[in-house]
């Protein structure tokens, strides 16, 4: 089969394939690896993953659209995922979201024109003891504050 992903993708798939009785069970790991490489899951990527796992594309698409973490459109280089669930909301997450929206001049779920920042609202991240929390790409920023947010957004005009 023609290789359409980078080496890392195939290495990861090789490492884990021994643990699964069928290829379909590797769908979530494959999608994670694909998204890591390409930044988001396009229609073409769904087809590539389907071809790799030898399953119908519909099975890939129904899964991609079910899970919040798979992006079906490009996201900014800095993806600010604000938890706005009860514990974070009790500790002021809404104020942080409004501040980010104002500073970036976009609304929740949108990306700045230069493709740098995306702001989104996510559900409980499991960091309630250090609320509010914002997941910036993969990393948790706990006890998040307007000051810490300003630092991340440095250089952007309100």
């Amino acid at each position: 089969m023609k290789k359409v992903f980078g080496e890392k993708f195939y290495q990861e798939m090789d490492r884990i394939s021994q643990f699964y009785p069928n290829k379909r069970a590797m769908l979530l790991p494959a999608l994670h690896a694909a998204q890591k490489e390409r930044g988001w899951i396009s229609d073409e990527t769904m087809q590539d993953v389907a071809d790799f796992l030898e399953i119908p594309k519909t099975q890939v698409k129904e899964v991609v659209t079910f899970y919040h973490m798979f992006h079906t459109k490009p996201v900014g280089k800095v993806n600010l995922q604000f938890c706005n669930n009860i514990a974070c909301w009790l500790r002021g997450s809404e104020e942080l979201i409004h501040h980010a929206e104002k500073k970036c001049n976009i609304r929740l779920g949108e990306t700045t024109g230069d493709g740098v920042f995306t702001i989104s609202e996510v559900e409980c991240l499991g960091s309630c003891g250090t609320a509010p929390v914002c997941q910036v790409n993969d990393d948790y920023h706990e006890n998040f504050s307007v000051e810490a947010l300003d630092k991340l957004l440095e250089g952007r005009q309100s």
Partner: peptide, 24 residues
């Protein structure tokens, strides 16, 4: 095996479906 953002996958039968590469 990493999930991909779905509260419902904590429900054990949803979790099993998710592990099988299906919707949770």
């Amino acid at each position: 095996h990493r999930g991909a953002g779905a509260y419902i996958c904590g429900e054990e039968t949803a979790l099993l479906n998710s592990l099988e590469g299906k919707r949770g």
